[in-house]
Design a protein around this nucleic acid. Structure first.
Lengths: 141, 141
DNA sequence: TATACGAATGATAATCGTTCTTATTTGCAA
DNA sequence: TTGCAAATAAGAACGATTATCATTCGTATA
């Protein structure tokens, strides 16, 4: 549990809400959380945090580089731990499960296309929405 | 001006708001419009439409296949005429200008990746956010 | 260890984009 | 023309997010 160092190096005080949120992301099998998800999970765990605090902390963590924010269809932002390595997402339309992937060829072609059009890439997002063909998909949406 | 046929074939009555919205998309150099954009433009043109109607019409046009909806960062939906041919987008971070591109290699790799992960692609969105390196960029954001 | 002060919090109001409700108007077929 | 279902405009309602503000907390310092 070296979370306080994470926070300190990000210039953030080590407070209970921040520790709890960070713990969720670091010690849970689920990698992707919306603000509402985090809020409910903390309430269920007996923590007494405010929704506004959750939003604030998530944004701070994003700015500190601890988390990455994604805008999937559906309006709400989704966060995940920043592993440093970029990847894209494939979202199951049945159950909402998110899987990650990285394809060198796709990344390279993006650079090529952008350069040819006269742009310098700052960021990009590739979201594939699909039906899971495996049995492991719970289809519980 | 064969818009009424467009509407009729989509099972939609030929009303003034619908004609005006469709006209905007068909006879304007700007291809991408948000609901708010459309609403303001129509008001400036002296039309007396309601914002709710604009939202309803845009959604109907999307369902009818006349328009395509995009979810860029920033939360709000953006629409454009459905030209039938899929393409991805590169958004200028300076001026918000949207350019379109299509890359066969990227499309093919996406199919490959999805198949390998056990998914059947239904839809996808690739948005590149970049700085325009040409002088043509108005940098007026 | 006590303390002081700025940072962080929680409750709630406000905002933004979008959808719903409802009373009124309109397109169009008979 | 007339009748009626469909479409509209206005504004209320909504969900996600941000702003406000009085209170509490973390921590550097004495």
């Amino acid at each position: 549990m070296h979370q306080p160092e994470h926070l300190k190096s990000a210039g953030l005080k080590s407070t209970l809400p921040r520790l709890k949120v960070l713990d969720l992301f670091e010690n849970s099998k689920e990698r992707h959380w919306s603000a509402e998800d985090v809020y409910k999970q903390l309430l269920n765990s007996g923590e007494d945090v405010g929704l506004a605090t959750v939003y604030r902390v998530l944004t701070q963590f994003e700015q500190a580089g601890l988390l990455v924010r994604h805008h999937f269809e559906g309006g709400k932002s989704v966060f995940e731990l920043n592993k440093g390595e970029h990847h894209d997402h494939i979202v199951c339309l049945q159950c909402g499960h998110v899987e990650e992937f990285y394809d060198t060829a796709i990344e390279a072609r993006q650079e090529k296309v952008a350069t040819e059009l006269g742009f310098a890439i700052r960021d990009h997002s590739l979201h594939i929405y699909a039906d899971c063909t495996k049995k492991k998909c719970p289809h519980k949406r």
